[in-house]
Design a protein around this nucleic acid. Structure first.
Lengths: 208, 208
DNA sequence: CTTTGTCTTAACAATTTTGTTAAACAATCT
DNA sequence: AGATTGTTTAACAAAATTGTTAAGACAAAG
């Protein structure tokens, strides 16, 4: 067996584990199911990753990283003028979540059911928060001073953007059947929803 | 043993089960832990509720009902003028979730990890959606015709309101430590956040 | 005060699930 | 080839967890 095949097996287990853990959570996931889905015996899974716990950590670390990146995306391109920058940030964040629609729910659940892991995202996110303060808040204050936009707390805006973008995906499965035609075509709905989120935030920002 | 004591035991088990299921999910919950928290032997738990599954269903049914009610609250008091009505709806919904902050996450998880139960909320929520259409959309259209507010799809507005209100609570545990002073005092933050959500939606509605 | 049905306990059974091990097997290096 | 190293398999062990049962305690009703 050559190296490529081995790595292949490892990554097949990881892929199967990701699916299983995201779909069923840590407690609901079964190492035997993961092994079966990956096409290996369950002894092999333990050979490669030792324990369920360790396998899970591999997935969680990866997902926390992606989640942190998605949050960074909200802050957009610093070279653009403030309104363009925020608009681009919303769009980038939306697209990021669209590419990983199950990410937020997984991460939030993980944090709530196992708070000890908290700190990992905390460390990642700590950097983000510094960014918000040191850069964007100043810029917003300046623009507000020039009467271009409303005076506001970037953290509140950040929460609003995350709310609007993330909820769309987290709640999709249970909103879809009660929304009729609006959500029947997923791609069309997501396009409309993205526009709606941008519009909502832009109106919150612009001076009336 | 009289009836009251019996009912007491039953409701103690239910209370303990609610806590455990919400905190750890179905798979993570342990019937022995529930029994212990309720102060009964685990055989008693099985005597009263037969299986873990049946005990869980009792909790889920209750939570689905509360969730449906909270969604209805969004539509506010039909006797008020449209802007007042929507503002009141946002506020009522926010307060509803504030009183049951773990409800949305629990319900969404339940639906996603066990889609077969889907239909329950679907049936409940179907009624809601009829309400939206037959009443509020008409009223909004009329107000838009009179140039009082923007023309918009009530379903999109509904999603936005739910997003802003629910995300606040679902994400609280992982936003709190990265938000510093803003979220340090929970009650103060929730008040500010409620105002912010109302402001955000009102600006989306009002004609510019 | 006996009968009836309900409640309680403790021990146990069945199953599921994670994890281990020893031996077979394959690949690689000298 | 022979030794060494790493991989795979099948069977097994250990633990946890849900659920059952038999025997008896207890309260309520006749």
């Amino acid at each position: 067996m050559d190296k490529q095949e081995r790595q292949n097996k490892e990554s097949e287990i990881l892929a199967a584990a990701e699916q299983e853990f995201i779909a069923k959570g840590y407690d609901g996931a079964r190492t035997t199911s993961i092994a079966q889905a990956a096409g290996v015996t369950h002894a092999m899974l333990h050979y490669y990753f030792r324990t369920k716990e360790q396998l899970f950590e591999r997935i969680v670390d990866e997902k926390f990283r992606v989640m942190s990146q998605s949050m960074l995306a909200v802050f957009g391109d610093p070279n653009l003028p403030i309104l363009e920058r925020i608009k681009g940030g919303i769009e980038a964040h939306f697209d990021y979540i669209a590419a990983n629609p199950e990410l937020p729910r997984f991460v939030i659940n993980e944090i709530i059911t196992r708070p000890e892991r908290y700190e990992l995202l905390h460390r990642h996110a700590g950097v983000i928060v510094s960014n918000i303060y040191d850069n964007l808040q100043r810029e917003i204050d300046a623009a507000a001073e020039r009467k271009e936009i409303e005076r506001l707390d970037i953290r509140m805006l950040f929460i609003s953007i995350m709310s609007l973008n993330i909820f769309t995906f987290v709640a999709y499965p249970f909103m879809q059947p009660i929304m009729g035609a609006l959500m029947a075509d997923r791609n069309k709905f997501l396009e409309e929803r993205k526009r709606e989120n941008i519009e909502t935030i832009m109106r919150r920002i612009k001076r009336q």
